[in-house]
């Protein structure tokens, strides 16, 4: 369940990165549709956070320790909203580039989360 979610978040994050990267390439700021995309990815990371905590509460043990696991879950949840707010303050291609890089960061976090959980 958690691994499937991790893969889903990673793939959608890469799609968001490509989308916002394309907007940056075309010299466009982030628009409503981009924010809807960010919301979708953020909801997925929230679900992942909840599922992860439930798994911990059930007594399952992450391979690399609980503290690291929870820290990465929280980091994954905050990455896209933080980049999204920055792109609201910078209404240019650089705002889009920031969201794209935030999505890449999220994808990297998901790869690490996969390792931290499964070993």
């Amino acid at each position: 369940m958690l691994d499937a979610l991790t893969i889903a978040v990673g793939v959608t994050a890469l799609a968001l990165a490509a989308w916002c990267g394309h907007a940056a390439y075309r010299d466009q700021p982030t628009k409503d549709w981009h924010f809807i995309g960010m919301a979708v990815v953020t909801v997925l990371t929230l679900v992942q956070l909840v599922v992860g905590v439930v798994q911990l509460a059930r007594g399952e043990e992450p391979h690399d320790g609980t503290v690291t696991f929870v820290a990465y879950l929280i980091g994954a949840f905050t990455a896209i909203p933080a980049a999204g707010f920055l792109s609201l303050t910078e209404r240019s291609r650089w705002g889009s580039a920031t969201v794209a890089s935030g999505a890449v960061v999220l994808a990297v976090l998901e790869v690490r989360l996969y390792d931290i959980w499964g070993g």
């Binding site: 980049a83 920055l86 303050t89 910078e90 650089w94 920031t98 890089s101």
Partner: peptide, 17 residues
């Protein structure tokens, strides 16, 4: 923090965290 600076401060922020 304007233009490319936003991207820069974002990456620095991520590295800091």
């Amino acid at each position: 923090v304007a233009g490319p600076g936003v991207l820069l401060v974002w990456v620095y922020g991520v590295m800091s965290v």
